Amino acid sequence: MPRYDFRCRACGATFEVNRPMTAAADPASCPAGHDDTVKLLSTVAVAGRGGSASAPAGGGGCCGGACGCG
């Protein structure tokens, strides 16, 4: 089940809520009972085999190297 991060605007607490994706946009109360919360954007890290984040060999870059950016 996906986990969503929220922050309470009243007390500043950050907390997690596990809920189905169909309920992702539903409001959540903080553990202290405040209802003024905001859903935080979460980041997802994806690693390929070997866990290296380097660019493929041979240049390439964003446009195959034709613009000199790679």
Rank of each mutant, 00 (worst) to 15 (best):
A25N: 14
H34D: 12
G58E: 01
G68F: 11
G65R: 14
A13S: 12
T22R: 15
A10I: 10
G70K: 03
P56S: 05
R3K: 13
G51I: 04
A45N: 07
A10N: 12
A47N: 02
G65C: 14
P20C: 10
S42I: 11
G48K: 03
G68C: 13
G60T: 00
P31N: 10
D35C: 13
G50A: 01
C11W: 00
R7N: 09
C67R: 03
A24E: 04
F6S: 00
G68W: 11
V17P: 06
G51V: 06
G58R: 02
S29E: 09
G12I: 00
F15W: 02
S54V: 02
T43F: 05
H34N: 13
S54L: 05
G68Q: 14
M1F: 06
D5F: 01
S52H: 04
C8H: 01
A32N: 15
M1R: 14
T43R: 14
C30G: 06
V46M: 08
G65L: 01
T22Y: 11
T14H: 06
S29L: 10
A55K: 07
A53R: 11
S54G: 05
C62K: 10
R19G: 08
V46Q: 07
P20A: 10
A45S: 08
M21H: 05
R7P: 05
A32F: 06
G51W: 00
